[in-house]
Design a protein around this nucleic acid. Sequence first.
DNA 1: GGACCCGATGTTAACGATCACATCACGACG
DNA 2: CGTCGTGATGTGATCGTTAACATCGGGTCC
Lengths: 335, 335
Amino acid sequence: MRRPTLDDVAALAGVSAKTVSNVLLERPHVATATRDRVLEAVETVGYRVNRAGRGLASGRSGRIAIVVPNLHQPYFAETAERLILELAARGFTSTLRIAPDAASERDAVLTRTTADADGVIICPHYFVADFVDTALPDRPIVQLGGAPAGVVDTVVMGEREGFEAVTRHLLDTGRRRLALVWNPFSSGEPEGSRYEGFVSAHRARGLEPDPDLMVSGSDWDRRASGYEAIAGLIRTGRTFDGVVAINDAVAVGALRALRSHGLRVPDDVALTGFDDTDQAAFTVPPLTSVSPESEDMARNAVDMLLERLNGLDAPGRTRRTGAHLVPRASSAARS
Amino acid sequence: MRRPTLDDVAALAGVSAKTVSNVLLERPHVATATRDRVLEAVETVGYRVNRAGRGLASGRSGRIAIVVPNLHQPYFAETAERLILELAARGFTSTLRIAPDAASERDAVLTRTTADADGVIICPHYFVADFVDTALPDRPIVQLGGAPAGVVDTVVMGEREGFEAVTRHLLDTGRRRLALVWNPFSSGEPEGSRYEGFVSAHRARGLEPDPDLMVSGSDWDRRASGYEAIAGLIRTGRTFDGVVAINDAVAVGALRALRSHGLRVPDDVALTGFDDTDQAAFTVPPLTSVSPESEDMARNAVDMLLERLNGLDAPGRTRRTGAHLVPRASSAARS
DNA sequence: GGACCCGATGTTAACGATCACATCACGACG
DNA sequence: CGTCGTGATGTGATCGTTAACATCGGGTCC
């Protein structure tokens, strides 16, 4: 009951192991009759390739590392899910690395851990691109939703458009004093473009956002942060009739803060999120959000990675994906 | 700039490759001085083991496959996270397989896909243990939260106690007519023990649950199912003052149904979930739930798997973990 | 009709580690 | 004082696959 090897298949098909290998790798120059015979033999003996042997001989593992800060935030879980499915469709295995802090993110990317993996797709939390520039990694890296950096490919989602759309939506349904709730780690570019969308939508309507209404909580946890930010606004006596949250998690926290301070959503305050995570549809009231078209993001990320694996040598590229408003009850117009 | 191999390390340390290997595998009978010298050499040349080579020679990949139906349901995402971290702590890599339907679950378990993996930990959705018995897998399998089956090890969470606790909690805070909301796939054992807990808590108070209040929705999606179940109860004119949901996802759907039908939680109806997923703390109102002590579950699952990998040969074992009530506002006593 | 080319397949040698076994030195013990 | 046991290390083979190159046969081209 030994697990069958290439040689077993070869013997049965009456060819050499190399030919079997050629068939399985879909190499050119294999006669159709031979291929059929080999494939049949594969079936008969129940052969399955030994990844270790292949990996050793080819220098490739066929495995991509996906790095996320955690899986308990729906955005990361859903993104990881999409990536895994997309990679599987292209014949790659994925290994999931959880990198909750900057050090482990660095670790995961720079081969220290996850030594075997032909490439890395990372949803960065801290990733400031610094360490990628200082210590050049030895395999392709694609960043999903971070600030474009020198050497790595980046997929940026339609943050500017998305925030513009959601802000416009609120302004056009009669809201005038909009709060913007960041998450505490917003320092880099991407949050910048979110901010831009927020501002430009105001200006397009001849309005100017109130700087006093742009806040963030301090907590690591995004939802707690959203709660804290809104609680802070209320405590300091600011008034507002709409809240644009930087993502759904922050919005969920904000929602709870609004309710526990007696503000009704959407009657007193309209609320919007971003990412259109699964949870958005099931909050009470359902949360208006922006869908980042995550299938597109995943596909683009994998595309870029595979191009690199196929030998592409170029400076870091950037691809942009779209985003569209998903209106729900949390931002319904006041009756 | 070739990646350093065992031989490079050996040359620098003045020993043979085998000795280096012995050091890295922490084999006995290595002199301390030698070990130190080798480890220093490893550091100097920046050696990292080649998993493919090791895998080929040892017949082990050091990788465990985690199989979940999806990652967008918080319970699965959080469970996967725990498992990954637990495995990482024991020196194992994880590969995540998403198996949304029965066929792919079967596939993932029976080596067809995921050929390289020393073992499998599966959070079953459909898993009826049937196929494991018919086609004996060639590597250890641990089931997390399913019905105990013949050949595979199983971790069952404290479902009976948990449901008993949460039901008792509702009864003791004055609720009398409790609905039980299943999810549509509840046919097997584990749901049975949930049911038992629900019933036994009633009996312990000299009460009998009303069969008309035990319902499930039909939708695949658990939340939609919860929504549907409650909407159905209300539509058919049943009255109840408490809802025990089979898990948090179902509870979230139920919560939305209650609110959209004008029932207040907890004033009109108390509501409880199960799993204590991250989302429970941030619903409005926060959701009373039962924590399955998931660290324990993950640890037990990994423990059992490693025992098998270390050669244990025994019939399928079952380990039980605890569960405790996490009371929140959704089940607060009426004022 | 001979040189050439190219498609199809086989041969040999890695790839980088571990395993089973051999070897060696040294102290203990009868 | 020789034998043996044991701890420490080295030797050679081996894992299953693919890469590089060789080979072989038959058709094409001039």
